[in-house]
C-alpha cells in the first residue's frame, strides 16, 4: 500500500492510482494528543535541575579563574563550619531545633564546596608535577673547598649552538665561534652548568660533541625548568647555590629566567653571523669577576644593566687605568 502511494506520487500517470492516493488521504484523523499535565511537571523539575547544575558549574569555573585554592579555602571556612552543629548546654529546645535545621540546610553547599576543593587540589598537584622542576635541589652540594667558586649557567640554543632545518640539507647544528676556547678557559675559574629548555635526548648528544674536554659539569634540560605562562623558565633559586654567586649567560637571558638580576644578556647567534665574537669578548669580564670574586654579583650586574657588558667593561677598565695614571702623576707633582 505505501509502495503504491510512493509510486503514484512519483509517477502520477494513471487516474486510477490518483484515486488510490486520494482514498488514502481520506483515512480517519490521528488520535488526539495526550494530556500535557504530567510532562509539564517533570519538565519543570528537569529544567530546575539542569539550571542548578549549570549555575554550579559556572560558579565553580569563575572561582577557579578568579581565586587561588587557599583563598577559596579561607572564604568558605565559615560556610563549611556552619554545617557542623553541636548543641551547647542550656539552650532551649526551640534554639536546638533551629540550629539543627540550619546545619542540615547547609550540609549540601558545604559538601559541594569540599568536593570542589578536593578535586581542585588533586588536579593542581597533577599539573604541578609537569610545570615545576623535578626537585628543589637541581645540583648536588658544592665541595667545601669550592665554596668561593662562581657558577656560570649557560643556555644552549642561540647561545652556544644554533640548529636549523632546511629541506635541502635537513637538520644542521652549528657551533658558535669560539665556544671551545670559551668553555676551556672559563672552566678554570667557574663551575659551568648548561641549563636549557630542550629535551634530554637532544641535550645529551649535543653536549657530548660540544664538550670534548668535559668543561661542563652538569646538564639541566626541560624537566628542570619551570613552565609558566606558556614558556619554560630557568629557576636559578633551585640550583642549590648561593644566589649571589650565580651568573646566567643566554641569548634570551632576560625573558627566559625568573631571576633577571643574575642574567648576562649576550647577542643571540645564528649560523649566518660568522663574524660573531661575543663569546670571546665575554672572557675578560668573566675572568675579572672570577679573580676579584665579589661577595654578591647582583649589584655588579645591576650596574651594567642595559649596557653591552663586554664593551662597557672595557670602557670602565680604560677609565680606571686613566684614573690610576692621574693619581700617579699627582703624587709625582707633590714630590
Amino acid at each position: 500500500m505505501s509502495l503504491g502511494i510512493l509510486r503514484s506520487r512519483a509517477i502520477s500517470l494513471a487516474s486510477k492510482r490518483f484515486l488510490c492516493t486520494n482514498a488514502a488521504s481520506a483515512s480517519p484523523p490521528l488520535p488526539p494528543p495526550p494530556s500535557a499535565a504530567s510532562p509539564s511537571r517533570w519538565s519543570f523539575l528537569k529544567y530546575a535541575l539542569v539550571g542548578a547544575l549549570t549555575g554550579g558549574t559556572v560558579f565553580a569555573g569563575y572561582a577557579s579563574y578568579a581565586y587561588s585554592l587557599d583563598e577559596i579555602e579561607q572564604k568558605t571556612r565559615s560556610l563549611r563550619e556552619s554545617a557542623k552543629y553541636t548543641a551547647g548546654d542550656g539552650v532551649t529546645a526551640l534554639d536546638k531545633f533551629q540550629g539543627l535545621l540550619y546545619s542540615t540546610a547547609m550540609t549540601v553547599p558545604a559538601k559541594a564546596v569540599e568536593l570542589y576543593l578536593d578535586a581542585r587540589r588533586v588536579i593542581e598537584e597533577q599539573v604541578k608535577s609537569y610545570t615545576e622542576p623535578y626537585t628543589d635541589k637541581l645540583l648536588p652540594d658544592l665541595l667545601p673547598q669550592e665554596q668561593h667558586v662562581f657558577t656560570l649557567v649557560l643556555d644552549l640554543n642561540e647561545t652556544l649552538i644554533h640548529y636549523i632545518w632546511t629541506r635541502d640539507t635537513g637538520w644542521q647544528t652549528f657551533k658558535r665561534p669560539g665556544v671551545d676556547a670559551f668553555l676551556e678557559h672559563l672552566a678554570q675559574f667557574y663551575e659551568i652548568v648548561v641549563y636549557t629548555d630542550e629535551q634530554n635526548m637532544f641535550v645529551d648528544p649535543v653536549i657530548e660533541r660540544l664538550d670534548t674536554k668535559h668543561c661542563i659539569r652538569y646538564r639541566l634540560s626541560r624537566p628542570a625548568t619551570k613552565y609558566q605562562d606558556g614558556k619554560h623558565f630557568r629557576d636559578l633559586s633551585k640550583l642549590n647555590r648561593n644566589p649571589g654567586k650565580v651568573l646566567y649567560l643566554s641569548g634570551h637571558a632576560l625573558e627566559s629566567c625568573l631571576q633577571p638580576e643574575n642574567c648576562l644578556p649576550i647577542k643571540a647567534w645564528q649560523q649566518q653571523d660568522i663574524d660573531d665574537t661575543a663569546l670571546l669578548d665575554f672572557i675578560p669580564f668573566l675572568e675579572f669577576v672570577a679573580r676579584s670574586s665579589p661577595p654578591d654579583i647582583r649589584p655588579v650586574l645591576a650596574s651594567y644593566q642595559g649596557c653591552d657588558i663586554p664593551s662597557e667593561f672595557i670602557r670602565r677598565s680604560k677609565e680606571h687605568q686613566r684614573r690610576m695614571q692621574e693619581q700617579k702623576n699627582r703624587g709625582r707633582f707633590w714630590k
Binding site: T173, F174, Q272, I274, K318
Partner: peptide
Amino acid sequence: YHPYQDLNVPIQKLYNLPTAPEHL
C-alpha cells in the same frame, strides 16, 4: 682574534676563530 686587545694588560691570548659556520 684577541679579546684583550682593547685593554692595556699584559695578558696575551689569541684565539683562532673559524671563517665559515662550524658544524657540531
